[in-house]
Amino acid sequence: MSAEAAAGRPLLSIRDLRTYFHTSDGIARSVDGVSFDIFPGETLAVVGESGCGKSVTAFTIMGLVPVPPGRVEGGEILLGDRDLLKLPESAMRDVRGNDISMVFQEPMTSLNPILTIGRQISEAILRHKDVTKVEARRLSIEMLSRVGIPSPERRADEYPHQLSGGMKQRAMIAMALVCRPRLLIADEPTTALDVTIQSQILDLLNDLREEFEMSVLLITHDLGVVAEVADRVIVMYAGKVVESAGVVDLFERPGHPYTRALFRSLPSLEHRGEALQVIPGNVPNPLDFPSGCRFRTRCPIARPECATTDPQLIEAAPRHLVACPFSSDGGDAQ
């Protein structure tokens, strides 16, 4: 999908996005010059460790960054011809839920506990579409059944606490997709779920993406999930994109030393009993990122010049961008 999609016009283009948090201890450059495209119909995964800026990126696209302390310092988020960062809040409310929807990690807290499931979905429809209440309810029930909730008429009248975790996440997805958005942002949608439920939800997302011809921006920390559902992958580290590639490319020929180290630190199913290769040190503090290449403090192939130059994304192979000028120089020393 990605190769063909890459030829077309992107659905959403992000250019040099910078979102900072102004705290009394300093400025957290959580998203610092991030650029990427999402093409129609593809699943783009954004992966990274805690504090890498992947969730802040998603919240910025949705216009949901809390201000203050957050502030979008610059960049563009182009949905078609419109720059979402320049839209007034009222226009942004029309975009949210209608053009772009989001599902969150915590299905328990993302649903309003005092409204029935059906009511919550109906309200989302009524917000964006000119339909009657009866029609909205019919559409809600149809959507609930589409996301695999058994006996949807009955479930529509139930409250969130009456549903299991997996069912709640299905209801969340139903609510996000009921207005047929062109882009679904899924922020760690399966992290709070058990593996067997997780695989159900991932399958569901994949089916719905095809059926609704939408794009999915999947925020995750789980490389296994990425491999299962993504077409293309963006790897983030310390507020920057360090690598961007098709999923097969990335997993078979990781370019950036960070991506390589990440793969090597996974406990593999093939080998057992050997010590894992670790990335030394800790994830850097967003208030105090290293100068130059932000990974240099933990990088096995760091050189003195890494401290002074900010590495740019360069095309290491067709459609495979890597932000490391030395990535071909044996960073993969096993």
Partner: peptide, 19 residues
């Protein structure tokens, strides 16, 4: 059901119904 970091593999899913 374990997500395995091997992309585009053949899925051998054993779907478990319900919760």
């Amino acid at each position: 059901a374990i997500p395995i970091p091997v992309p585009k593999r053949a899925r051998t899913n054993i779907p478990l119904e319900g919760d």
